[in-house]
Amino acid sequence: MFNKVLVAEDLDSISITVGQALEELSVSEIHHAKYCDDAFLKVKKALLNDAPYDLLISDLSFKTDHRENQLNSGDELIAAVKKLQPTIKIVVFSIEDKSFRIKSLFNDLGIDAFVAKGRNSIPELIKAIQGVFNKKTNIISTELSHALRDKSLIEIEAYDISLLKSLSKGLILDEIALEFKNSGIIPNGSSSIEKRINKLKIFFKANNNVHLIAIAKDLGLV
């Protein structure tokens, strides 16, 4: 079993419960962090001391308070940790249930397992940790197993996500075109953007832009 594990979770009750699950698995060294910045610094320090973490268990959402942080979400933490220590194993433990976001965690951030918080989540978490230790990948909670099989979002590209986010901010065509141009996003012509929006409306069966954004939010795209 893993020897050294870091739990990034801002709720004490959940952090304690996860710690107890790790103790059941005979993990010898368990550390906790309530802030993403603190978790990242722990990973960095462990590497410098030549005693790296084997596994990171992280939530995705962290409540903001008076403290300013560089990393404000589990997604940002995972991306930073993976860049620093590419070989570390990562299990996400979250209430997230949006197919696209879960897929992106596996495809873009390279996590090893996703466990949904719920009534039966601790046995699922233990099972996932054991699976990751045994070199299994793409492990996901039973209740969310459809997320990785869902092919309805396969055609959605990063460009479409940027476009949907711009629309969700209330930007009109010319404003989106300017934003894309300034960000180096191609194509950035008003005509091309309009055609892409129409394609997305057809793809999602949306009646108008407002309906399109509502669907995108439900899917966790924006």
Rank of each mutant, 00 (worst) to 15 (best):
N3T: 07
K4G: 04
D12H: 11
D12F: 05
S15Y: 03
I16R: 07
G19Y: 01
E24C: 13
L25C: 09
L25D: 07
L25I: 11
S28W: 07
S28Q: 14
S28H: 10
E29K: 06
I30P: 04
A33F: 04
A33C: 04
A33N: 03
A33V: 00
D37M: 06
F40M: 02
K45Q: 08
A46Q: 12
L47W: 10
L48R: 01
A51P: 11
P52Y: 14
Y53G: 01
D54N: 07
D54Q: 00
L55D: 02
I57R: 00
I57F: 01
D59P: 00
T64I: 13
H66I: 04
H66Y: 09
N69T: 14
L71V: 08
G74A: 09
G74W: 07
D75I: 12
E76Y: 05
E76H: 07
I78H: 08
K83G: 11
P86K: 00
P86F: 00
K89F: 12
D97F: 11
S99Q: 14
K103F: 15
S104W: 00
D108I: 10
L109W: 06
I111R: 05
A116Y: 09
A116R: 13
R119K: 15
I122K: 12
I126A: 14
I129A: 06
I129Q: 08
I129E: 08
Q130F: 15
G131C: 11
N134G: 11
K136A: 13
S141C: 09
S141R: 11
T142W: 15
E143P: 15
A147P: 01
L148R: 04
D150F: 09
L153P: 11
I154M: 09
I154N: 13
Y159D: 08
I161L: 05
L163P: 06
K165D: 05
L167Y: 11
G170K: 01
G170D: 05
L171H: 06
D174K: 13
I176T: 09
E179M: 15
E179I: 10
K181S: 13
S183C: 12
S183E: 14
S183G: 13
G184M: 14
I185H: 03
P187W: 10
E194A: 05
N198P: 01
L200M: 08
L200S: 05
K201I: 01
I202E: 02
I202H: 02
H211N: 10
L212H: 03
I213N: 05
K217P: 03
L221D: 06
V222D: 14
